[in-house]
Computed example of a mutant assay.
Amino acid sequence: MVLVTGGTGLVGSHLLLKLTTDNIPVRALYRSADKLSQVKKVFGYYSNEATSLFNKIEWIKGDILDIPFLENAMTSITHVYHCAAFISFDPSDFKKLERINREGTANIVNICIDAGVEKLCHVSTIGTIGRTLNGEAANEETEWTRQNANPYAITKHLAEMEVWRGAQENLNVVIVNPGVILGPGFWNSGSGSFFKTASKGYSYYPPGGSGFISVLDVVSIMITLMNSGIHSERYILVSENLTYKEILHKISLAMEKRPPTKALKFWQLNIGRIFDKLKTIFTSGTRTITKNTIYGLKHPSTFDNSKIKQVIQTNFEPIDKQVVFSSKLFIAEHS
């Protein structure tokens, strides 16, 4: 049986859809019952049998910080997909990020070893890939440093160190480092914010850019790696390197909105950072614009996907195709 952590997220829900479609026995962890409806909704995007597929999953409510719960959840498990993570770029969330992302991953690794799990796939981020100094595309060997890294990337790097520790203790592991994952259903977080922003028809776009990939490609590659003899490797998962202007242009056109034409200046971003900080003081919200955020926009990276292409003969889904598909669903849910 397969175990999936983070089953109610973008990657986790699409992974569960693929596993259940392929009739793979699967157990999934969840923390809040209200998020299960989100998984059913995602299933419905792709299948008329969404309910029957959803009912194939053995759902267990619990927390990856709860060791006795994890020990029970790992019973009879042969393969683990660790998709769970806490995402925040607010420095004030560092302790929570470190606890869930590093400590939670350490728990997963330790119990995988104790339970004799055959293989672990850990979902990380391109935030743990180093930056090049010469403008060349970064690859899996590019040295990462903590300097100017956001708190999420720092704690995901620490999580990777726990996975490599597991590898040294004879646990078969693979790590995937996806770029910005595009897919439908989670409009208020992650890449969903691009669709939400484009729908409002703003005139401005942020500087910089990143690597992008369809959620379907991420899931397909994860399963292929888990079913292979490959272990003790990490792979950048990026299909296209795009500027934020380019991705917002694509989404805006798919939504029949006017694309943004004006670049935000860095002085505007710095003013926005100050107001963003003041807003969190008075509203107890989460900061979205920090010094590290602006540094990343000022020093964008591109990413080399040649390593994964050498081991898996795959044709990445065109970003345009996923943009059109997700945009149609966004419009249908917000019209």
Rank of each mutant, 00 (worst) to 15 (best):
V163I: 06
A159W: 07
T51F: 08
T290N: 06
L29D: 04
G166E: 00
R273G: 06
T155L: 01
S252K: 12
K119N: 04
E141V: 14
R146W: 05
I294K: 05
S37F: 09
K309R: 11
L248W: 01
S220G: 00
L53C: 13
L216W: 02
T243V: 01
T20M: 12
T132C: 10
F282G: 02
K196F: 08
L225C: 10
L278P: 02
S88Q: 12
I281D: 09
F303G: 04
V219R: 01
I251Y: 02
A137G: 10
V163Y: 01
I319Y: 11
S232L: 06
N170P: 06
V173A: 01
T288P: 03
V39C: 10
V238I: 08
V2S: 03
N48I: 06
R102Q: 15
L19N: 03
F69M: 04
T132G: 04
F195H: 09
T128I: 03
Y45I: 14
S47V: 12
S239L: 00
I274R: 11
T8M: 09
V176I: 15
I24V: 14
F266Q: 03
F195R: 06
V173Q: 00
F54H: 14
F94L: 10
L133R: 13
E256Q: 14
S193K: 14
I154P: 05
I319V: 15
F69D: 11
F89L: 05
I308T: 04
Q322S: 13
F195N: 08
E136M: 11
M1E: 07
N315I: 09
N72K: 13
S232Y: 05
L19G: 06
C121P: 07
I271F: 12
K96N: 15
Q268I: 03
F86H: 15
V163S: 00
E233V: 10
I308W: 03
S37M: 04
P178K: 00
L171F: 08
P260K: 14
N305Q: 02
I126G: 02
I24M: 08
I271L: 13
V173T: 14
G208A: 01
T302M: 11
K56S: 09
G9P: 14
L16R: 02
H82K: 03
N315D: 15
M1A: 09
Y244M: 00
Y152E: 04
I213E: 02
A115C: 03
